[in-house]
Design a protein around this nucleic acid. Sequence first.
DNA 1: AATGAGAAAATCCTATAGGATTAAAGCATA
DNA 2: TATGCTTTAATCCTATAGGATTTTCTCATT
Lengths: 231, 231
Amino acid sequence: MVKAMVFSHEIAPGQRVNIDALSLRLGVSQTPIREALARLESDGLIAKEPLKGYSATNLLTLKEFGDLFRFRLLIEPWAAEQAAKHIDAQGKAALKEEMQIAKEALKFDDNSKIEALTEHDARFHSLISHLSGNESLHQAFERMHCHLHLFRLFLANQRNLVSGEERPAFVSELFEQYYQSGSGQLAIKQHNEIYKAITGGDSKAAKQAMHDHIESSLKRFSPAAEAINDL
Amino acid sequence: MVKAMVFSHEIAPGQRVNIDALSLRLGVSQTPIREALARLESDGLIAKEPLKGYSATNLLTLKEFGDLFRFRLLIEPWAAEQAAKHIDAQGKAALKEEMQIAKEALKFDDNSKIEALTEHDARFHSLISHLSGNESLHQAFERMHCHLHLFRLFLANQRNLVSGEERPAFVSELFEQYYQSGSGQLAIKQHNEIYKAITGGDSKAAKQAMHDHIESSLKRFSPAAEAINDL
DNA sequence: AATGAGAAAATCCTATAGGATTAAAGCATA
DNA sequence: TATGCTTTAATCCTATAGGATTTTCTCATT
């Protein structure tokens, strides 16, 4: 559990992870480290090679990236549809609160804004998959989405590197495309459409809005996925 | 990994699992046991309560059972559709071989037949989710399906108890409904429909056949799910 | 200079022991 | 007889040490 944070980019993708070093660094013994690593292995976030050790999994390949979004298109519009059908007062409150957080986040400065919006997006979609009422779908979503989240955190992390460091040129271009062109506001706007449809009980609109949002999101991220794929 | 077999019903659902006992029983130390348990926890097959220990998760509740099938209806027909579109020679051979195994299994005597058909069903659906070409979907399927598989193994296991033992009356009834009424042959027949549609490249028919098959399967299992839910 | 063999270092894997927490059993008292 | 407390036992959790395998570095030979 604590290791999920460690993994969120203190260890570069593909890098081997040293158990002894981790245990010293975190001040705990090797056993709990191995447990956490085993859990992360089941989540597909690290890979284990017997007698060779653990290593962080690479970022999504271009194919995996496409697969993931195709899968989202399969389950999330349905989840939004179901959420609209079964929504109750408690669900409405939760959605409203999340939208409020997003609105506040738009006022932050660049770095904080990106981080906040990324976290908001993860929570928003997770919440809807939960509100679908289907536990199987929710679990599947959570396990799948962490890989996408990792990808986005990687992008944001790249940006935080000082310009002086050897930052690939494509990264700089990507930032303009994403973060400067008001895509944050666009995403929030689309979230708002979904939010209104769900709380309004309009299941058909909710399904459509979610579909459009994911397709839009795919278009925004595709150039980055291609660029990173070329490493 | 080895523990998945141990879990397949040497430990009753809901029962607490003793680490010391397992390490003695399997002749290995506690550390690898804890690793395996941590992995199984991520798979949702066992639950951990801090400072209290691990325990096997209960069987699917009626709601979870319904959720799972609704989720299958969401992803598997699409998987069959995609498999039909992308099928190649290697995929056809794999499907053909699996269907051949099923055909042979029908000749077994009752107990062996049930076991063989259960395993075939798991492999068949897993294979199609793989042939869909979508890695996200395949992974989601695998993680979800193990819970259903566990449920079916539980049923089959109950049957193997000698009649003399205290076996709930509903179980006896269920067996008639399922295994004596030729439902095994029905399932194989439906699998064959799917098989033909996919290898024939008829994506629309494959999607429809998979949909019908899962709905049929749900109807067959629902009484058992209800009965077990009432424990 | 390049390749191969050998040795040393690092790392993983397992086992055993001790401390801490929880559950249970036994006893006393109302 | 039932309830509450204390003691005992069981179990989990962590830490440390030793054996096994892999990797790397060095050195000698072609």
